[in-house]
Design a protein around this nucleic acid. Structure first.
Lengths: 394, 394
DNA sequence: ACTACTTTGTATGACTTGTGTACAAAAGGG
DNA sequence: CCCTTTTGTACACAAGTCATACAAAGTAGT
């Protein structure tokens, strides 16, 4: 029951049919590969001859390759899989503390990785990114086809407008400069959206089946990436997912990025957990990093555990609101906090259950399936997903 | 960047191309008609000959018809428009107080309308619906092709499971019975979702351009219909849009359907407004209807106006949360309350502005474009939209 | 009234793509 | 060594759009 957007709709031509089927075949290879032509034909109900023609096209452009397979009683199949000998993408995970960059192959496997502290001066950080990009391009075999950047701020995908509250960067020409320096296409998005994209395309199989989910990214702030119908929802001006500014109470331990003590992120971000720990441990003087608090908690230190558990409780209140309103098939919690998942999971789930108004179907709440750095994978996904995404039709 | 759903994906055949283009042409006629074949060819960049072939198909199945047009300097065009001489759909707006039923043509124009009080006993209400359906089928010219039902509760579009909290109806076989009695396909959905569908397909032109919006339906409770990418989002089990149970404060004037005094709908529903009025007017004894409160307010009665304005303030708090999290292009407020829109609009907008955390783009907040009964139009839309919706591809 | 021009709608062969059938290739099993 | 099974390819046919030509039906100028 989707309404056709007449302004953007493209009528189907003879080659549209091949465009559609090429993407379908490519995705079968990506998700079920190594797989034979005959198996794809059975799954898609296309003829084997048709699959052969499409496979030839995909091999010519270097997206897939053949390996030999074992016979199952007849002629042995030649199995198809993604061609992963070359690097094709560079990802830039621009964080508030450090910036991580990596190159990856088509399947999203990281080949080379570097990192450096993020400089509050945009120009200096941008210089480092350009340098590192060129190093990565030189170091890796294969032609890089694009650069993806994940940033902790708001990005308008249409206009390219950018706002990073933590450094107060506004409309810095990051993408433009990088494009000029490398002559590669650059795409940039909010870190939570990018992480959601990564979970959608490269997450654990149990998540990849899910087409409607919410990723809650806990870092300096709290961001959400909303996936609806297998698509990241960006909203007007790319500002969707700012549920971090949802009011959920009063008297938070820290202020949110805008100075409120009522927002969800003022209750549930890394900064709030650190503040809780400092209050409990009375270590008000010295700066403690969130990473250090997690280390302490994993060693069993009581105050650190209590601070994390309390933070989890507030995470749960916000998650409950999202579950009630959006009924996702799953909620994923990502970011560094995923490292202490066993410490917080019980309190978090209990908080969600008690905050939900009535017997809503219980929604699975999982830790990120991409380790503690889903945003780097997100940056890479910005490039990789575009090669596999379905062509927009009608 | 949509991820292909391999389980549901259908590979494209030769006729897929025609299927796509047929829907595009039909929607041009629907939205821009009366329009000539040549004009559609210019818009779609398809050849005039191709459009002619498609138009022939659409005329044979009775979806469009020809009228003569004026020359603009050359051969006069034969204009195409939707065929609206026949009734094609029946809509059932099952409300907590009354049930309104109507038949409509392809363009959504109501032809015949009836209404009766809703009986708390499902069976009796169902009998009335069956009777009325048969009357409407007999009364109207043309073959009815389906029946749409809008209900104030949760409907799972997959399993058909139903729950109407106001009458405590659970899994009543409404759709099945009606299908058997009329041998017509029956589709049912939540009232807010149906109303959102109606705004999407049959709303004012300024809303029809919008592909991401939220409809807030204020009635006995508060429901939301969420439209993403020109599609109503239903969520897992059809339970999305229950933002009415979002916690926004404490000490609401009434309890929500589940007994909480913290939910949005306990602050912003019709019942809450009536309770506020009764408290202000100290008329605790007699039952006052929301309709009566609105009448008083329109006459200028002070307590009624104050009760509605206070309700609008809480409506605004919830709407602000939705705007921050989902960044819709517009928010539409629908339901009977649209009748007093001039009374409440200022307080509502002021409340939204003050609740929003920072300089988010200001989102238009509009009253329903479908009068005071958007849910009847929603029920009809359940049938009509399926005829115009784009065929799911890839 | 006649001609030139414009615009609309239709007819026809060429091109792309998937289908269905036939066939070759390459293994296992008795 | 022959039969069966499975895989991959080749070729005539059907469906659909494109490009072009052409017919139809007006307006505008002389």
């Amino acid at each position: 029951m989707r309404r056709i957007d007449l302004k953007k709709a493209n009528a189907a031509r003879s080659n549209t049919i091949r465009d559609i089927n090429r993407q379908i075949v490519l995705n079968y290879v990506r998700e079920l590969g190594p797989i034979s032509r005959a198996a794809i034909a059975r799954e898609t109900a296309l003829q084997r001859s048709t699959i052969s023609l499409i496979v030839d096209e995909l091999r010519v452009v270097g997206l897939i390759e053949e390996v030999s397979g074992e016979s199952t009683g007849g002629r042995p199949p030649s199995l198809l899989s993604l061609r992963t000998v070359d690097a094709v993408a560079i990802g830039v995970d621009l964080g508030t503390v450090k910036t991580v960059m990596a190159s990856s192959d088509l399947a999203g496997r990281v080949l080379e990785q570097e990192e450096f502290p993020t400089d509050p001066d945009v120009k200096k950080t941008l210089e480092k990114i350009v340098d590192c990009s060129q190093r990565l391009i030189g170091k890796t075999r294969g032609a890089i086809e694009g650069i993806g950047i994940s940033v902790p701020g708001v990005v308008d995908p249409e206009s390219g407008n950018l706002y990073v509250p933590h450094f107060n960067w506004r409309n810095a020409p990051i993408a433009e400069t990088l494009t000029q320096a490398t002559s590669l296409p650059v795409s940039m998005d909010n870190d939570a959206n990018a992480a959601a994209l990564a979970e959608l395309w490269f997450g654990r199989p149990e998540i990849r089946e899910v087409r409607d989910f919410i990723l809650v990214l806990v870092e300096q702030g709290v961001g959400t990436g909303i996936v609806f119908d297998g698509q990241v929802y960006r909203g007007e001006g790319g500002t969707a997912g700012e549920f971090g500014h949802m009011t959920i109470g009063t008297g938070a331990p820290v202020e949110c990025a805008v100075g409120s003590r009522e927002c969800w992120e003022a209750f549930a971000s890394e900064r709030s957990a650190v503040a809780r720990y400092q209050k409990l441990a009375r270590s008000n003087g010295d700066d403690v990093s969130f990473s250090a608090v997690m280390d302490l908690a994993l060693k069993g230190e009581r105050n650190a555990r209590a601070a994390l558990k309390e933070t989890a409780r507030y995470l749960g209140i916000g998650i409950a609101n999202l579950i009630q309103g959006l009924a996702p098939e799953a909620v994923i919690v990502g970011g560094p906090i995923a490292r202490v998942w066993p410490v917080i999971v019980e309190d978090l789930k209990a908080s969600v259950d008690s905050s939900i108004c009535r017997g809503f179907p219980s929604t699975p709440i999982l830790d990120s399936t991409l380790g503690s750095e889903p945003t780097l994978m997100g940056a890479l996904s910005l490039v990789l997903a575009s090669k596999f995404a379905s062509a927009p039709v009608a």
